[in-house]
Write a protein that binds this DNA or RNA. Structure first.
Lengths: 254, 254
DNA sequence: ACCTGAACACCGTTCAAGT
DNA sequence: ACCTGAACACCGTTCAAGT
């Protein structure tokens, strides 16, 4: 939501840190790092929708306009906070079979989202919107796909599969319900469940008891309250087995 | 971003359509349907971030406040528009092997997002946030999983896998880059690519040419301009093969 | 270099009042 | 029942001015 007071305006841009004049030390009370830390804390607490610069400034004991000397926009703050969370997902992944490394990667990503669930609906889009990707992560992915036997165009496709697999399940699992009304939301979900027609949706009706509050679109608790652990294990299992089978099939065709 | 003028206020609620008094026909110029149509058109055009009620009202030739007689909030408008897009994804899926039906489902969902790419970053979260799920879709999913041999808790897990698979790839593929600056964005991406270190990220560097602008996190064109068709085919292939293999493994263990 | 005060141009939402 | 006018309480962002 870009609301510009004056539509036509030169960009702000990051200030380049000039070396301090010797002796004259102007204590930099704010600084980009401190701002991003505080922004991440606020977003973790109330979600990106409710995040606003005036509260951030108050939290930092500073005038709202001060933020803009270090960061060009609210969006950049959200992206920056998301990037800070993303970085390091792929560090310290133990060597081993490519299957195990892939599983470790998926678990790492999910763990990161579990620590920052409010970011779940954003990370996918922010990941793309962020030119600052984690090169270590991508190198890991490419290497494990080489080990799996992919190459050339097939490796590119498999790479996209892995990235999508990384984001896919965890994002859905941890995206929270609308925080507006708690009980009202649960009631609406239960009402929908009760409306399932055993005649028109027989298969669904058969398994409704098992699915209730444990399945996407049929649950009201979020992934933070009720983790879908076995579902996530199934997810990694399907991805790994699928990549194995596809690699075999491609090798056979070649 | 709930900004309430008066924080404590009773809810608005949907108006119940009373039968018109005979003769006295007050032409209902607005109506929930017409509003949602216009809202969807605006969101398709400029994205959910830029969507605002005042423009919607202007588009409908009406005062902004008039909207609130039919719809309780801006969020409800976005959810409603998203729901309208979602509905019917699973209609007219041809009978056949469960593998083919699953593939058809994934293609349907992607096709829907391709027609409404601006909704891509939302649909996942709106799907969850929306108590009005598409029962036909869910019944389809459960039925094909029964046919694949899943049952009980394993079926619940597999169900979650299928839903995540449906949203996973297409959402990433069609989530657009920040619309702010076009060329600047591409330049930033290219700069990142150039910064990949052949020594520290050797595997990534080896395939960088093939990945450039064709892979998640390494592309600047969106899925609307450059569809990742072969990547999506790989995705469905991996999911189907993975589910096949998992079903076999579970059967063997039982 | 870094921050403040005050303003501008927007918002979503409400409320009384009209018809 | 349905819509308008006008207001309220917020926003992000800018700009001149301070230090």
């Amino acid at each position: 939501m870009p609301k510009t007071a004056v539509p036509v305006k030169p960009r702000v841009g990051r200030p380049r840190k000039l070396p301090l004049a010797r002796g004259a030390a102007a204590a930099p009370v704010l600084g980009r790092e401190r701002i991003l830390d505080a922004a991440l804390a606020l977003i973790d607490a109330h979600g990106p929708q409710a995040f606003n610069i005036r509260e951030l400034a108050a939290q930092l004991g500073v005038a709202p306009a001060a933020i803009y000397w270090h960061v060009p926009s609210r969006n950049a703050l959200i992206s920056g906070a998301a990037a800070r969370v993303m970085n390091g997902v792929a560090d310290d992944i133990a060597p081993g079979r490519w299957q195990d490394r892939l599983r470790a990667l998926l678990h790492r990503y999910r763990g990161m989202l579990q620590r920052h669930p409010k970011l779940a609906p954003l990370v996918a889009s922010e990941m793309l919107g962020n030119a600052a990707f984690d090169a270590v992560l991508l190198d890991h992915v490419v290497r494990l796909l080489e080990d799996a036997g992919f190459d050339g165009a097939a490796l590119v496709d498999a790479y996209n599969v892995v990235i999508a697999a990384m984001c896919g399940f965890a994002t859905l699992e941890l995206s929270a319900a609308p925080a507006e009304d708690v009980g009202e939301w649960e009631a609406a979900c239960r009402a929908q469940l009760a409306r399932v027609d055993a005649v028109r949706q027989p298969a669904l009706a058969r398994h409704l008891g098992a699915l209730e509050n444990k399945a996407f679109l049929l649950r009201w608790s979020s992934g933070t309250d009720r983790p879908l652990g076995s579902g996530f294990d199934a997810w990694t299992d399907v991805i790994v087995r699928g990549l194995e089978a596809r690699a075999r099939a491609l090798r056979r065709a070649a």
